[in-house]
Amino acid sequence: MNTLLHICCAPCANQCIDVLRTDGYAVTGYWYNPNIHPFTEYRSRRNCLRDYAASIGLPLIERNDYGLRPFVRAVAEDIDGRCVKCYSMRLYAAAHEAKEGGFDSFTSSLFISPYQNHELLREVAERAAAEYGVTFLYRDFRPLFRAGQERARELGMYIQKYCGCVFSEEERYLKAKKILR
């Protein structure tokens, strides 16, 4: 069985890759994250993933679109409800790539994050799978989140401080500002 793993970043992906390989899957990484901004953040995450993939022999497909304008247009009408649009952009692209590439299934490293809306993420992935006629391989990787972060630190990986979009970065700073008051 070969699966396409949409990857948001190397720190989130390392445990997902290990689990899938242990379960007998041939894993190919897929980089498509038009939500990550600014460009320096996008480049840092992408380059870290490139280096990690090379170090573990992970085939990596890159849809290397820095998508500031399309992302902002997609979420501008409902910034607070942006996550569903963000998940859709990435998971529909992954499902399409899985179909076109002849993969048996697809999944995402997003399923490791305790900060993501897991049920919404799963619903979007299932809709994408149905639309493209591919199998969505569901795994709840959240119990492995801390181990993945620890491994990322051990390997000297770049570890981000927010999910990727400028609005999540803004929320991070607003929360810090409230704490300082």
Rank of each mutant, 00 (worst) to 15 (best):
I112S: 00
S105Y: 01
L91D: 00
A53P: 07
E123W: 13
T40L: 09
Y25F: 06
S88E: 05
T107Y: 02
L120M: 07
A53D: 10
H37Q: 14
T22A: 12
R63F: 12
R45D: 03
Y42R: 05
A74E: 11
L49I: 14
S109P: 02
S105N: 07
N117R: 10
D78A: 12
V124C: 03
S113Y: 11
S108I: 04
A53W: 07
A53K: 04
T107E: 06
V27M: 06
S109Y: 03
R127Q: 08
N33Q: 15
D104N: 07
S108M: 08
D104T: 04
N117D: 15
P114I: 03
N33S: 11
G81S: 13
G81T: 05
C48G: 01
D65I: 08
T28G: 00
D78N: 12
I112C: 01
L91Y: 04
K99M: 06
R82V: 11
A74G: 10
G81K: 06
I36E: 07
A93V: 06
D23P: 06
A76N: 14
A53G: 14
R90F: 05
H118Q: 15
V124T: 04
K99T: 01
G24L: 10
L49V: 05
K85T: 09
P59K: 10
W31S: 00
Y92E: 13
E77F: 12
E123H: 14
N117E: 13
C48T: 04
R69N: 06
L91F: 09
D23W: 14
A26R: 12
K99R: 10
N47G: 04
S108C: 10
A76W: 12
A95L: 14
A95M: 09
L58F: 08
G67W: 04
I56K: 01
R21H: 11
V19F: 14
R45N: 04
R50E: 13
P59H: 09
C83A: 14
V19G: 07
A26S: 15
K85V: 06
D18T: 09
W31Y: 08
G24N: 08
F111Q: 02
S108A: 13
L110D: 03
